[in-house]
Design a protein around this nucleic acid. Structure first.
Lengths: 247, 247
DNA sequence: CGGCTTCTTGATCAAGGTCAACCTTTGTGG
DNA sequence: CCACAAAGGTTGACCTTGATCAAGAAGCCG
């Protein structure tokens, strides 16, 4: 539950930024963002990210997290998966309230930035601010896909779609090796993300395995044929799923 | 299908802006936005808003519209309802691609703005740009609620929640009279929004009527007791559902 | 080696979908 | 102003999908 503040990874040498899907920074921008940095936070698997306290925003540096909501009746809906490079906590910093919680799924390392300086960022770094908006629009697009998935797709397609989408996002982050990528999420989390019961997710996975569309084994997802799975699930790869990390 | 370009409503006298939920403009901002205005567009009910052509962005001035996606199998998912003051077309203008379509549900009047000048807006009007981002965050919040609705709520609650949410948005726009507000959407559209069949939406509406939670008659929604419905559906009124229109 | 959590599968049950029919409203042309 | 057509609303009967319950197998950690 408790985050450990540690010696900061210098923004200039941050390895995330080397990834071509992330927006390049001018040296002026980079030094501004460096100045926003408050430190690093390490969370163990299962920990909740407390986001209210100091109006901080975070960039996930390493690991997996989820953004989710819990209903009065106790059931939970996973809104989105947070992967390295993704930003967390913008609503808290800019709107003052949050309506969701963020949990670490694995051990995660986050970069903490001063959310109070966003306003200054908008005044002094318009291009970066614009990228920030674009990143939101891209996330919105993924959210739209999730709504469509939940509202109008069958169980097997839902599971297949979600896993394929995750693989594509991991691919952008150079986290795919050959036909396989890490898949630390549990059946229960899969279920809470696609709006099914854990048991039914099993049935869906079995069917996907039977059809040779994908396989999860030992926390690893393997997709033999991307096209086949994309066709089966109706997945369309969105060009430019690049984003705008603040780190 | 064809929009009619007409004599522009002057931004300075735009009645939408008088509504307190919309962000106030400085006179400098107002004159910049006035300069972005390309004209007005009137769409008949059922018309599709073509958003690709000139990288325009639009503010809905009057009427109702939907943002939706159609799947390969022909079924349709309504992503969101567009109400007066809402902005349409940001993805087309800023990302260059769109993955959804916008249809007019009733006769609508839209204000067309030059999307190409957003970049300049970010450079010269940082505060307005920030509001633009905040408006996206608020929309995202509504989208998160929709995901939760689709993933983890029962049929009757889904319908009740959606209608209550719409009423609250209409309230912000001064479109609620007493316990009633206009509700031009059809059963089919309701169904495509909440991920149910038309027939089952009927069953849900019947139950809501039986429980005295709400009633739709003659294109009018009546909610006798807001609290009761909010409790039944788990709806929580989000403070500050204000937004940032460009008009 | 226990004691935990997660995975997996079968059996049964309920929520919601589909089909089909009939009714009601709206809109249009004579 | 009426007649008729078309679109939307409403309901019942039946079927499919996915939820729930229950129990055993397989990892994982002290």
């Amino acid at each position: 539950m408790v985050g450990t503040s540690q010696a900061a990874v210098a923004c200039r040498t941050c390895t995330l930024r080397r990834n071509p899907v992330f927006r390049g920074f001018s040296s002026r921008e980079l030094s501004f963002v460096s100045g926003m940095k408050r430190g690093d936070i390490v969370l163990p698997a299962g920990a909740k990210l407390t986001t209210e306290q100091r109006s901080s925003i975070y960039t996930l540096y390493e690991g997996w997290a989820v953004r989710c909501r819990t209903l009065p009746n106790g059931s939970r809906q996973i809104l989105d998966f947070v992967l390295p490079g993704d930003t967390v906590g913008l609503p808290a910093a800019l709107l003052g309230t949050v309506d969701h919680t963020v949990y670490a799924l694995t051990r995660t390392v986050l970069c903490e930035l001063d959310g109070g300086r966003i306003e200054t960022l908008f005044h002094k770094h318009a291009a970066l601010a614009l990228s920030l908006l674009q990143a939101r629009l891209i996330e919105q697009r993924r959210t739209d896909a999730r709504i469509t998935l939940l509202g109008r797709m069958g169980a097997t397609q839902r599971v297949g779609y979600l896993l394929l989408e995750l693989r594509e996002r991991l691919k952008d982050r150079n986290l795919v090796t050959g036909k396989s990528c890490p898949m630390p999420i549990r059946r229960t989390e899969l279920a809470d993300a696609v709006g099914l019961s854990k048991v039914h997710v099993m049935r869906a996975l079995r069917e996907l395995r039977t059809r040779d569309l994908l396989q999860i084994e030992a926390r690893t997802l393997t997709i033999p044929n991307l096209r086949k799975l994309a066709h089966f699930t109706g997945y369309v790869h969105a060009r430019g799923d690049n984003l705008c990390p603040l780190l």
